[in-house]
């Protein structure tokens, strides 16, 4: 059975949303930063407990706040991957408020928070960061080194199907 669902990636600019999608869908990574203009839609089919989940992934251009992203891009989403950069505090300073706003706009829609670019921190600093970070259930990933990327999308997929 194939079920199609819309997943959107939100987060401030330059946190690695496009890189996560590239890694997840195409198994690729590029050091070159290219800002996303508008929206790019990709898809990947995941098999979750025998169910074929057709994920239509909307890579939405990052803004200084996800509330500045046109609402119509977010409407109808079945799942949200909220990405921040573990090395850039400005990308997660306001995260609780951003998540609240997303919850208001998309009530009941699962949101998976992903801390990207852990390769830049190293093990010790990452441990310290995780211990001090106030949010629970965050997946710490690296699109560059392919760490926990698939897991992030899979966990969101499972939550969508629940």
């Amino acid at each position: 059975m194939l079920i199609s669902k819309k997943v959107i990636l939100l987060g401030k600019f330059g946190v690695g949303k496009t890189s996560l999608i590239k890694r997840f869908v195409f198994q690729k990574f590029s050091e070159e930063y290219q800002t996303t203009i508008g929206v790019k839609v990709d898809k990947k089919i995941l098999n979750i407990h025998g169910v074929e989940l057709n994920m239509l992934i909307w890579d939405i251009a990052g803004e200084t706040s996800s509330m500045r992203v046109p609402q119509s891009y977010k409407l109808g989403a079945h799942g949200v991957l909220y990405v921040f950069d573990v090395t850039r505090p400005s990308s997660y300073d306001n995260i609780q408020k951003e998540l609240q706003e997303i919850g208001k706009l998309l009530p009941g829609v699962p949101v998976q928070v992903v801390g990207n670019k852990i390769d830049l921190l190293g093990d010790v600093r990452l441990q310290k960061f995780r211990a001090s970070f106030f949010l629970e259930g965050v997946i710490y990933a690296s699109a560059k080194e392919d760490v926990q990327v698939e897991e992030a999308f899979e966990r969101l997929g499972k939550a969508i199907l629940q």
Binding site: S4, K5, K6, V39, V41, D42, K43, L56, L75, A77
Partner: peptide, 24 residues
């Protein structure tokens, strides 16, 4: 309307992925 998910399609000539076309 909102999600951009493809409900159904019909094509005379071969085309690129219709799910993605619908989304775009």
């Amino acid at each position: 309307q909102r999600s951009g998910l493809l409900i159904g399609s019909f094509s005379v000539t071969p085309s690129i992925d219709q799910d993605m076309t619908a989304g775009m």
